[in-house]
């Protein structure tokens, strides 16, 4: 699907820091505009017998909201993140062990699920867990005039007709997970996927630059 010229892929400023917490095995914070998520990864560690899987690692994802207790919305996001991570991780290399990923929302200004996915990917990479490919999250919103906005703010999400989040893998730029809200046509969905795939290239380039910066001292 060709992306129309008029839809400009504008992402907000990203920022990322890896290895900022001392206790977890891997940690990262990811900032997209004013949305910010802090992620911590523990593992491969000992697993409870009831959760043990004999041929792969058990992955557990917890999302902590900024205020209050986690509810149904957080559970839904946890599941999206967990399934994406399971697809990317080579969990058969650490059978009978547990991996836990904790995501703390620092601030929500739209595109929260994609920010969670990006923070999760950076934290998993920091922990040195074996992965078959990287993934990133891109959120698209369709406003009432039918224009596609990538990486919307909370206000833009509120005014839009539909909001979609895709997880894209780095190997073939295919969709690994999608989460949608609102009404849209098949054509619009295809267009949003194409836009997200284009945007994902920018994010993967950013991943590469930020990891390179991290290792620059030991090159």
């Amino acid at each position: 699907m060709e992306v129309e010229e008029q839809s400009i892929i504008a992402l907000r400023e990203f920022g990322c820091e890896q290895n900022l917490l001392s206790r977890p095995d891997g940690s990262a914070s990811f900032v997209q505009g004013d949305s910010s998520v802090l992620a911590g990864v523990y593992g491969p560690a000992e697993v409870k017998v009831s959760k043990e899987i004999y041929d792969r690692a058990t992955l557990e994802v917890v999302i902590q909201p900024k205020v209050g207790l986690p509810g149904v919305r957080e559970r839904a996001r946890e599941q999206c993140v967990r399934e994406t991570c399971e697809a990317a991780l080579l969990s058969f290399l650490h059978p009978r062990s547990s991996l836990s990923l904790v995501l703390q929302v620092i601030h929500d200004d739209g595109s929260l699920l994609s920010c969670c996915l990006n923070a999760a990917c950076m934290a998993l990479m920091d922990a040195g867990l074996p992965m078959g490919c990287l993934f990133c999250g891109v959120t698209c919103a369709i406003d009432p005039e039918g224009r596609i906005i990538t990486d919307p703010t909370a206000q833009q999400e509120k005014n839009s007709r539909a909001v979609m989040t895709f997880a894209i893998d780095s190997a073939q730029h295919r969709v690994m997970m999608s989460s949608t809200k609102g009404s849209f046509s098949v054509n619009e969905l295809q267009q949003c996927i194409a836009v997200s795939q284009r945007a994902s290239e920018k994010i993967f380039q950013f991943y590469r630059d930020s990891v390179r910066r991290r290792y620059s001292k030991t090159l």
Binding site: N19, D25, G26, G43, P44, A45, L90, H94, M125, D126, A127, G128, L129, P130, M131, G132, V211, R214, Y215, T218, L219
Partner: peptide, 27 residues
């Protein structure tokens, strides 16, 4: 050959390659 960790590629003669990463958990 698939890279599955982030880090610096190292080489040792004659044909040994590995990724030098900064992880904390021991395997």
């Amino acid at each position: 050959i698939l890279v599955c960790k982030s880090g610096i590629l190292r080489h040792k003669q004659p044909n040994m390659y590995w990724i030098d990463s900064q992880q904390r958990r021991y395997v």
